[in-house]
Nucleic acid binder design. Structure first.
Lengths: 335, 335
DNA sequence: CTGAAAGCGCTTACAG
DNA sequence: CTGAAAGCGCTTACAG
């Protein structure tokens, strides 16, 4: 920048003013500066700018796993929105590990990101609050907690599973298992409660099965379930990981869907409609969640007030081929 | 840091030395500094450190699309490797847009990343070289070019399609279509050439079909192909986008795989083995590619010499249910 | 081994 | 509108 100033015969400050375009600079000088920039092929050092101006135009996204289809979709969309607004995203993957998440969040803080979007869960809200630190704009997405200290965006989980369960009940199913990975997570608890509520209203017994954290574990657990005499007539998965496990397990057992059992997936993704039978799903509104998350974060960064800090978006039930009327003793039960 | 120095009754420089752990500092002072840090809950400002030390411990990854399963797998793995080494990754998505890619690369450069891994393609190698700029460590992955100015990592594309085609030929197929998205990309050209070579050796006519860039376009193009009287007995897709399109198109046409047509996918991913029939695939070595890419980038950042700058890794053919012996006029042809 | 001082490349009040 | 100067929070030769 010094060189540019010399080349254009203006002061350092003027170059800065031209490049930032905030203050008005005489057309004459502007042109000289711009010419000097192209002549010298000047590239601004954003690190120096950030140090002084105290904004990095960088945000951090903290996810458990990029390969999880929900998080991949959210990251993709947020990156688009952020980069359109001139922000660059730093992404960190934490696994389901609270300490890693804390360490990574601290790292992003040291890197002076302007804000964070957190989808990983820490053991407690206080832990999250201290890791993020005071004054750091931060939005929690999906992995909300009961007492989130930050604005949050999530699916209306209770309603989503309630509607999904209602769908299965309307098909005559009474023996439904809801299979989840992390029963301690607040969003899972919400999903369970929506399921239980619908089952209670139908006076049916709500059965929740914890199937482990990975696809492999879920496959094993569900294989056992499918082979047991106590197999339900319908399985409702708690997220896309469990859905994957369920499809694997079903193939392993030679179970026929939907003849032997109906399957409803929480989370929808491209391949679900290409399977045969195509799998019915409760579709989380990933795009809208991303939009809202970015909107809230922008507002926080801009120190604008946030009217509604906790946003819940409705899910959509997509009925395909895997959920059909319940069959008992070889006969279809009327819905 | 100033406050820490005052609290610990040492100089600013000493605090820096303790925190960086490079220079030896008397145990006595070390303890005082560390105590002061925890007492004040000190968080270092990496931006300031970066400005002075000229290293940000940040790398940039440039991908066309995070949702593409190959890039998602590569990003996930590279993020793991980089963060284990103390680096944070900035990720930018460019679509198939050369100008966007250039702009984003410039941005990363202004943000002073220590290195870049580029998976997006620019119109030419020179354009890439100027965007990245002199002295910037940079590794090209997957989207290699004939005259890459940077070290590169990619699948051995020629061999991969050669082996895949051989597999189809060995099943008696003579009428095989290889369907691709971007025939102008060098990696696609390699894949085409492996296909053509195998077909030439078998004295069969090599037919390449360009199906557009998106899954939607591919679906339409392949639906037309499947409905034409000229439908091949086997389809070999050029990447995971085309595979998706092929599965969609097949469902739309009510085409039965593998009875009516065999299907071989370039790129493998979880769902392929869950489809029925499970889809045979040429599996790109994503994990190894990530490892090699990170290794090369580390070497460049560390200014260590690179012995083999262009790395090619063999693909693996995974035979499942979608590729079977060719059927002509209702009879299976002996392989 | 420790400290005082310079400086990384910008932005930003402050005069003029 | 323009420029000179201070300063963002660190690291890094350089003395001592």
């Amino acid at each position: 920048m010094n060189e540019v100033a010399r080349e254009a015969n203006v002061s350092l400050g003027t170059v800065s003013k031209v490049l930032n375009g905030k203050v008005t600079v005489a057309e004459e000088l502007r042109k000289r500066v711009l010419a000097a920039c192209t002549k010298l092929n000047y590239q601004r050092n954003q690190i120096a700018a950030s140090l002084r101006s105290r904004e990095t135009h960088t945000i951090g996204i903290i996810v458990p796993d990029i390969l999880n289809t929900l998080y991949a979709a959210l990251v993709e969309k947020i990156e688009n929105l952020a980069s359109a607004a001139g922000y660059t995203v730093m992404i960190v993957a934490t696994g389901e590990n609270s300490e890693r998440a804390q360490a990574r969040i601290r790292l992003l803080r040291e890197r002076q990101v302007d804000g964070m979007i957190v989808m990983s869960s820490l053991e407690s809200s206080e832990l999250l609050a201290t890791a993020v630190g005071a004054g750091m704009p931060c939005i929690v997405v999906d992995r909300i907690t009961e007492d989130t200290p930050f604005p949050s965006v999530a699916t209306d989980n209770v309603d989503a599973t309630y509607q999904g369960t209602k769908h299965l009940l309307s098909l005559g199913h009474r023996h439904i298992v809801f299979a989840v990975t992390s029963p301690h997570l607040w969003n899972t608890q919400e999903r369970i409660s929506g399921f239980e509520q619908a089952m209670r209203e139908a006076r049916a017994k709500a059965e929740v099965r914890v199937v482990g954290l990975s696809v492999q574990e879920a496959t094993i657990s569900l294989t056992n379930l499918f082979r047991s005499p106590d197999r339900p007539t319908a399985l409702f998965t708690g997220n896309n990981i469990v859905t994957l496990g369920a499809v694997c397990a079903q193939l392993e057992c030679g179970l026929s869907i939907p003849d032997d059992m109906s399957l409803l997936s929480f989370d929808d993704f491209e391949w679900l409609k290409l399977l045969r039978p195509a799998v019915s799903a409760v579709q989380q509104p990933a795009d809208q969640m991303a939009v809202e998350a970015w909107r809230l974060l922008s507002q926080q960064i801009g120190k604008r007030p946030i009217a509604v800090p906790h946003i819940r978006i409705g899910a959509q039930l997509v009925i395909r081929q895997s959920t059909v009327a319940c069959v008992t003793r070889g006969k279809k039960v009327k819905a």
